[in-house]
Design a protein around this nucleic acid. Structure first.
Lengths: 124, 124
DNA sequence: GCGGCGCTACTACAAATGTAGTATGCGCGC
DNA sequence: GCGCGCATACTACATTTGTAGTAGCGCCGC
């Protein structure tokens, strides 16, 4: 389902997050879903969605009233993978990354155990 | 050692990586240390280093010949923390992040165990 | 059927970022 | 002690990104 060599900016990624969460949304709905101190103007969100459309990251699904609805055209996982890969590359390995998480208290040993268990079950 | 609310771009972060690795380096050395298909021009690297200096991320240490040497003025950890935090925020938690790593094969169960062990020892 | 309102399409623009050129200065080797 | 060459300081510029305004069209309600 697509090669997905699409680079997304921060804000674009944020919009994608909303779409992944909602499955489908109008520009208005995306704007409403973004929580910010200073919320972006409607047209700002619109521009981002348009850019995403040009990049092939979202596609139009339907029209309700005169509003268009959009859905993601790339998977959450593919985008995460890209971001995570970059970070791993920078930090120098996934193990150091996780070690960093533990060190800085972002992740507890219990968390690790939970993940292990889930992984074992999932891998079956 | 500094509040370190410094935002770094991708390229800037790359340069910082070199400096953390080398401890101290001239612009020329940084340029040489960057591996790229198309290596950046000397002055390009120079510009980045200058911007880093303005941001307070690096500082001059000494002069050898007529070349300046620079060293990091912010810690690797503080930058990592920032990047990791952003990613966690986006993905929605550190646990999902690690889960993603395991799922996509970036991290094995053995890695997890190793990290756990190390953490236990370290935390003592 | 028509008017208003919301939505889209298009345009604009400032700041950040990546990339590099030019002018000039200074140190080292001869 | 002088000039060559590398390094610096300054300037420049295209692109990307964030942010938003405006013009105009098409639905829906009346």
């Amino acid at each position: 389902m697509a090669k997905e060599r699409i680079a997304l900016t921060k804000f674009e990624t944020e919009v994608m997050s909303v779409l992944w969460r909602l499955g489908e949304a109008s520009v208005r709905e995306v704007q409403d879903a973004i929580e910010r101190a200073e919320p972006p103007a409607y047209t700002t969100v619109q521009t981002i969605v348009q850019r995403l459309e040009q990049k092939g990251a979202v596609r139009r699904t339907r029209k309700a009233g005169n509003a268009l609805y959009f859905e993601p055209a790339i998977t959450r996982k593919s985008v995460y993978r890209r971001l995570v890969d970059e970070l791993i590359d920078l930090i120098g390995g996934s193990q150091p990354l996780v070690a960093h998480l533990v060190e800085t208290g972002k992740l507890s040993l219990d968390d690790l155990k939970a993940i292990e268990k889930a992984a074992k079950r999932g891998a079956k």
